[in-house]
Design a protein around this nucleic acid. Structure first.
Lengths: 366, 366
DNA sequence: GATCTTGCCGAAACCGGTTTCGTAACCGAA
DNA sequence: TTCGGTTACGAAACCGGTTTCGGCAAGATC
């Protein structure tokens, strides 16, 4: 709350208003408004005349002023979560760049808020909505059951999901087909000759984890391998968790010769574990992952991963949201894209058998 | 530009307006406004009564409506640059979290735009200013001569720099004392017993590079070492550049036994070069860097670095900007903070002499 | 007791847009 | 020529706030 009525008066009042344009043309400002907004009761001649003059004078409507009447200020809301251990950190820059570029090109702006999860996030969103700081929202990293989506749906605010929901309802969304990538990863490993393939999944609360697990199972079925539940671990969303999960799999009586990871940050943990166990990634243990973080190229050997184009994703999401706000039906606003294989040196034909590795690990334990 | 006058009419008009509050109290809406904005001509009794009622009814002023009269919409503008190779990528999430949190607590919002450098960035900013989407700006990653600062200064728009300028003028700013950190890094290395210390600096266009170079020279003077210009490289802002610069220093006739880096991303490149040359980081070659990226902990041995608390920085910047917009004089809005040493295993007493390393590198070359 | 302040508030103008409503001018048809 | 219907625009209301202005009532001054 401000504590003083005094203003700093940094005026910058050189703006051209709609009245200026109207006066310059000798017509009513309402007419100018309708002309610029394509009302049907304006003659084509006048419309063109107004357009040209406005352009010439450099008139740009004040979004704020439009908003108080129309309720819309051409702003995209994006609410990010802070408390997840760096979960979206690496994507963020590209993602924002994509959203911002598309928004900018349409003369929209981007309002960003970050907050801890749960109630705080909901209250942040409601504040943005109450103050009409956003006409609609992009909801990234969707949970299986997502309170943000429920809130927005209840309030009838347009939104677009980055990711899908279990109960998709009427929602608009964009998503990368992670399940296909995981499927392809399994196939690639099988082609290398692997038969013991593990899977280290992401957090159960995220919807993508269920999808990627599905992709893993389908891939295994495709190549005629049975899924061994002992070789599947869930909830690895950090490098530490990835390392621990890898260790657990490698200590199995019949360890995998290859592991598919649902997310890169977890996969990077495998390097530490492999080093600890005296195993060479890419030879003793093949790893394929998903996300395509720049960090994949920093480790030795480079991590083979399915790269997600987050800039493109941001752009598509912004486009879908803008169209949604403009009135298109959400069920027509759904898109998918594919992740692209980024081959590194972390996968290849198995150099040792599962039993061989088991012996090695057992020996090390003493 | 919209192509249709039809609206989607997702009303959500359950808002409490100032008129609602006025009617409920039986007073004029102007009185309510003045009461809430601490005008001196409102009695304390009335002020309290209005406050309470507004709170109770859940009244929240529409920033847009306020803006058209006051010119201020309680929005912080942040314009980021996309085309710099991932330059701000790792910081971004924490930084945004800090800005957003502080803004939120003051009922402000954050408008983010990303654009390529130069003209595009300027036009993005002018659009935001013309449409009054931001009351002031945070200008991160300041260049020695910064066109953004010049624009804002010319238009008389409040802004706060993250970093300092050569020509600081009347500007408000916040900065981390990188020069002190670099100074301390040199001292630390000297205490380890190093006498040949190199410095790999960041891009010349950034103001911080000049400052950190100054810190390096002061540190060397402090410990009584002469700066050898051959052991100083500039413009290393990527891992690749860092690797190349390291190689260059190590091929010197009298290579350094320790290198100080201005930025982590460059320092990470030293690992690849060291591996190539058969040198062990932390033993044959000590490295200390600056930024404190999470990636420092991913490499072996962990990179000793001066950690910058970007979340705190974001918060401080937001606070300074808000105060600036509210009218405080920019020259009173200047703060600094210190980076904190994050010891890893990448520095220690030299295991080999400079001449020894030189022989080793020469031998390898054949 | 009359006048002058002063404190406090209501009324209305205003900000820059959008939208409704009314009507002059033009059209074709009777 | 008259009439009903369009077409195309002006005028004014409106959105939700802020700010100016003017005046009433209570207290202070003489």
């Amino acid at each position: 709350m401000d504590s003083s009525p005094v203003s700093s008066a940094h005026a910058y009042s050189g703006r051209v208003t709609i009245s200026d344009v109207a006066k310059a043309l000798g017509i009513a400002k309402g007419t100018v408004s309708r002309a610029l907004n394509n009302y049907p009761d304006i003659s084509e001649t006048t419309r063109q005349r107004v357009r040209r003059k406005a352009e010439l004078m450099g008139y740009r409507p004040l979004a704020q002023a439009q908003a108080i009447r129309t309720g819309r200020s051409r702003a995209i809301g994006l609410v990010l979560q802070t408390d997840i251990a760096g979960a979206q950190r690496p994507f963020l820059s590209d993602f924002l760049a994509g959203v911002s570029k598309t928004a900018s090109d349409a003369s929209w702006t981007l309002t960003v808020a970050m907050s801890a999860g749960g109630d705080e996030m909901i209250s942040t969103m409601t504040r943005l909505i109450d103050e009409r700081k956003a006409d609609g929202f992009i909801v990234p990293r969707t949970f299986c059951i997502d309170p943000r989506a429920e809130l927005l749906r209840r309030l009838n605010i347009p939104f677009v999901l980055y990711g899908r929901l279990q109960d998709i309802g009427e929602s608009a969304w964009f998503d990368i087909l992670g399940e296909d990538a995981i499927h392809d990863a399994v196939v690639r490993l099988a082609e290398h000759g692997h038969t013991r393939i593990g899977f280290i999944n992401g957090g159960r609360e995220y919807n993508f984890s269920a999808l990627r697990y599905g992709g893993f199972k389908q891939g295994m079925a495709k190549v005629g391998l049975k899924v061994d539940d002992d070789l599947v671990v869930h909830d690895a969303m950090t490098t530490e968790a990835g390392a621990a999960s890898t260790l657990r799999l490698m200590q199995h009586a019949q360890p995998p010769t290859a592991i598919v990871f649902a997310v890169d940050v977890a996969a990077l943990g495998a390097y530490a574990t492999a080093a600890e166990l005296g195993l060479t990634i890419g030879q003793d243990l093949s790893v394929i992952s998903y996300d395509g973080l720049p960090e994949c190229a920093w480790v030795q050997p480079k991590l083979t991963s399915f790269r997600v184009d987050n800039k493109m994703a941001g752009g598509r999401l912004a486009d879908l949201l803008i169209r949604h706000v403009r009135g298109e039906a959400p069920s027509t606003l759904r898109e998918t894209a594919k992740a692209m294989l980024w081959p590194g040196g972390s996968d290849g034909p198995p150099c040792r058998t599962s039993s061989d590795i088991a012996r090695h690990v057992r020996a090390l334990r003493n």
